[in-house]
């Protein structure tokens, strides 16, 4: 199986989908500058650089999607999405519904975020929960190159607008990516590691932190199950509930601010539908209510690390909850 970085897996998915469907095109800030292979194969009309104007990039994608194209746009860093909020939230997310279903908006928005490059709060802000809260949109955040490729291919074929977040810390980590036309349904979580004692639910880079924590916990006799959500909306509620029903303990882990984050929704879901299975309180581990600092130790401290996750899991097995 070939090894690719997540960045290159995205490039492969774009190439394969553009080859498959002439309506797929990609544009954004520096897309044509950085992705030479796509320009060479598909030409400058289907791979376009744009002005640094996130609003019009997104608006153009929305208008194009409604009239037959399948645009993929690259807005670079997630905080830049603030400039495109009207187009993504008010247009892409709502115009299908308020037109009585007359239009569909098959478009994918790529944006990078997360710790890893010390780029600071205006380039690193895990704001994915904003879009989960907005009707009409789907939200994806893969944790490895194989999933990134398969999920992006599915997202491009989806008839709805998809926000596709790329974790900066994972972007140049290599991983095995199967050859061929692999796809993954949106809304299907992966069990990254099986266990019976505690469920760790996560997405993006903190999936790997959960796996490290699970390794540590195994040495102490605790079998942690790690669920990689992959897609935040739709959310694989069944996978979460099944796992917690089995383990009786839940820790939700993400890099995004804990306050009103995706973890809050998952905690509420489990409290509402799997309360009887719980043997201990639910723990949410996430970033603080603070912008991200550029300084390396502070940037890393923002993110729940493996040691913190393992320690939290061990607390759930204290005699207090027995």
């Amino acid at each position: 199986m070939p090894s690719l970085t997540l960045y290159d897996a995205v490039g492969e998915a774009l190439g394969e989908e553009m080859r498959r469907n002439p309506g797929v095109l990609v544009f954004g800030e520096g897309v044509a500058t950085k992705r030479h292979a796509l320009v060479e194969e598909f030409g400058p009309l289907r791979v376009r650089n744009t002005p640094l104007s996130e609003g019009i990039i997104a608006g153009t994608a929305v208008g194009a999607a409604a009239t037959g194209l399948r645009p993929v746009i690259d807005l670079l860093f997630a905080p830049f999405l603030c400039y495109a909020m009207d187009e993504l939230v008010n247009s892409a997310g709502k115009l299908r519904y308020i037109s009585g279903g007359q239009f569909a908006f098959p478009l994918v928005t790529l944006a990078m975020t997360g710790a890893g490059w010390g780029v600071g709060a205006q380039h690193n802000h895990n704001l994915e929960a904003w879009f989960v809260h907005s009707p009409g949109l789907k939200v994806v955040m893969p944790s490895n190159p194989a999933d990134a490729k398969a999920l992006l291919k599915t997202a491009i074929r989806d008839d709805n607008p998809v926000l596709f977040f790329l974790d900066i810390g994972l972007l140049y980590q290599p991983g095995e990516v199967p050859l061929g036309d692999q796809q993954l349904s949106l809304g299907l979580a992966a069990i990254a590691r099986e266990g019976q004692d505690v469920t760790l639910v996560s997405y993006g880079k903190t999936v790997h932190h959960c796996l490290q924590a699970a390794h540590t916990l195994a040495e102490k006799g605790i079998a942690a199950e790690v669920i990689d959500l992959r897609s935040l909306k739709p959310l694989d509620e069944a996978a979460i509930l099944a796992s917690v029903t089995k383990t009786g303990r839940l820790i939700v882990v993400h890099e995004a601010n804990r306050l009103c984050g995706v973890g809050a929704e998952i905690a509420a879901l489990v409290a509402e539908y799997a309360f009887a299975a719980l043997q201990a309180p639910i723990i949410r581990l996430g970033g603080p209510d603070a912008p991200v600092a550029s300084s390396y130790p502070l940037e890393q401290a923002f993110v729940p690390q493996a040691e913190t996750i393992a320690a939290a899991a061990q607390r759930l097995f204290s005699p207090h909850y027995a």
């Binding site: 019009i56 608006g59 208008g63 194009a64 999607a65 009239t67 037959g68 645009p71 009207d86 247009s91």
Partner: peptide, 15 residues
């Protein structure tokens, strides 16, 4: 917003 959506509609017509 009509102004932000128009280029995409025209892009479809062109493409």
């Amino acid at each position: 917003a009509e102004l932000s959506l128009a280029p995409g509609v025209a892009l479809s017509q062109t493409m």
